[in-house]
């Protein structure tokens, strides 16, 4: 028993959770616990009260319409991974989930927990950013929507205010003739990536009409590669200069050096990982 003592509350609605969060003292939301409990066990953090979201049905819904898929924050990673309709509508999400930890972690970890945690090496924040997802957020003053571009502010830091919770994530659906790929380098399967990418390409009338490249492990937040995306758009798939796409994607980034890899290594490998992922995404888009 390593975590410091705390009071435990189990609200059954978003409103109850939000008002519990607004109380006195250090309070924190508990989702799947797969990132929060380790840091509590290491006594890096301690709280007066933990607010467990597991009993709130609203947060466990998956809703798919013609143009978007909305995933409740408390949908487990394993549930999303096994949800065929969701993975068909948002292929990048399903592909990325296979890289998140191990199946035992995904059996508890949630989609919202991963995104709210905002680890810069995590897959799902990069997927949200690449797809221009919108985050639905609830606080005491009501509900609001935050775009992925505005959501990820820094390492483990998001646009969520202290008394707000993430309720769901809405992923746009790209439609036919699009292809997606996730590529990453990690020491062992299931480890956090040293560097990786989640990208999508849509072809229209023989040319690339939309391109999105999300990067993780390359900075203090997930990142987009707008210059490389611009190079792709309007190009015939056969004429894509993959080397240039890769080097442009990492061009002016300055990833950190740490025990896992140097900054130079991250950039060199990042360029290749992007080139591979874009290749696979284009191939998939060409298949229809």
């Amino acid at each position: 028993m390593k975590p410091a003592a705390f009071d435990y509350v189990l609200p059954s609605s978003v409103e109850e959770a939000v008002s519990a969060l607004a109380g006195e003292g250090d309070r924190k939301v508990l989702a799947g616990g797969q990132s929060l409990i380790p840091v509590m066990a290491m006594r890096l953090v301690a709280f007066d009260e933990l607010i467990d979201l597991r009993a709130i049905d609203e947060l466990k819904r998956i809703e798919i319409t013609d143009d978007s898929a909305t995933v409740g924050a408390m949908v487990r990673q394993a549930t999303a991974e096994q949800h065929q309709e969701l993975c068909a509508a948002v292929p990048l999400l399903g592909q990325a989930l296979a890289h998140v930890g191990h199946f035992q972690i995904r059996n508890r970890g949630t989609i919202g927990g991963s995104i709210a945690h905002a680890d810069p090496a995590a897959e799902l924040p990069a997927v949200a950013l690449a797809l221009n997802a919108s985050m639905e957020v609830a606080g005491q003053s009501g509900r609001r929507t935050v775009t992925a571009a505005d959501f990820f502010e820094s390492t483990f830091t998001t646009a969520l205010a202290e008394n707000e919770i993430l309720t769901s994530i809405r992923f746009p659906i790209w439609g036919p003739q699009s292809g997606f790929a996730v590529e990453e380098i990690s020491r062992r399967h299931g480890d956090f990536a040293i560097v990786g990418t989640a990208c999508g390409v849509r072809i229209d009338n023989g040319a690339i009409a939309a391109a999105s490249i999300g990067l993780f492990g390359m900075g203090s937040t997930p990142l987009r590669a707008p210059d490389a995306e611009a190079l792709l758009i309007g190009t015939n798939p056969g004429d894509v200069d993959l080397g240039a796409i890769g080097t442009t994607a990492v061009g002016d980034l300055e990833p950190t050096s740490d025990v896992h890899a140097s900054s130079e290594y991250r950039k060199a490998v990042g360029a290749n990982v992007v080139a591979q992922a874009v290749t696979r995404a284009i191939e998939e888009a060409q298949r229809g």
Partner: peptide
């Protein structure tokens, strides 16, 4: 993974779940 148990049909880490959960 030494602590793996099955909870409601899912293999999970029993060190990453509180008993109250």
């Amino acid at each position: 993974g030494a602590c793996t148990v099955i909870v409601d049909g899912d293999a999970v880490r029993s060190c990453l779940q509180f008993g109250v959960q």
